[in-house]
C-alpha cells in the first residue's frame, strides 16, 4: 500500500512526529511505500537543523533525515507554515525540501491512504 504522511506537530511538545516516524519506518519495513511525508503547522520544526536535543534523547530531525536518505522518502516542509516559524533554506536540515501545500494535496490524491499525525 502507498501511504502519504502528514505531520502537524513539532518534534518535542507532542509525540506526533515520533509516532509518525515509527509508523513510517514500520510500514517501509513491511514492504509498503511511503513516497512523501508532509510537514505542516508546527510540524515544520521537525526540519530545523539548529535543533540540538540532549545527547541521551532521540534526535527526530536527524532520524527523519537519515530515514529519507536510506529509504528515499520525500520530506516536504510547507513554505508558508515554515516562513512564519523561521524554517527556511538557511536552517533546513539534510533530507528535507521546502515546497507548497499543493504537495500535500498531491500526496492525498496519489496515495492509497493519507495518515495524519497530530492533535
Amino acid at each position: 500500500m502507498k501511504f502519504g504522511i502528514l505531520i502537524n506537530e513539532g518534534p518535542f511538545t507532542h509525540q506526533a512526529s515520533d509516532t509518525a516516524y515509527h509508523f513510517t519506518k514500520a510500514a517501509l519495513e513491511k514492504g509498503h511505500d511511503v513516497p512523501r511525508v508532509f510537514f505542516y503547522y508546527d510540524g515544520v520544526n521537525n526540519a530545523n537543523k539548529l535543533s540540538e536535543p540532549q545527547a541521551d534523547d532521540r534526535n527526530l530531525v536527524k532520524l527523519w533525515g537519515d530515514l529519507a536518505a536510506e529509504k528515499n522518502v520525500d520530506l516536504v516542509v510547507c513554505v508558508a507554515a515554515g516562513m512564519r516559524r523561521g524554517i527556511k533554506d538557511e536552517n533546513l536540515a539534510d533530507g528535507f525540501r521546502i515546497s507548497g501545500l499543493g504537495q500535500l494535496v498531491e500526496a492525498g490524491m496519489g496515495c492509497d491512504r493519507l495518515m495524519m499525525f497530530g492533535d
Binding site: 513516497p35 512523501r36 529519507a68 528515499n72 520525500d74 533530507g95 528535507f96 525540501r97
Partner: peptide, 9 residues
C-alpha cells in the same frame, strides 16, 4: 532529498 512525482492525472 528525493523529490517524488505523483501521477495525479
Amino acid at each position: 532529498m528525493a523529490e517524488y512525482e505523483f501521477d495525479t492525472e
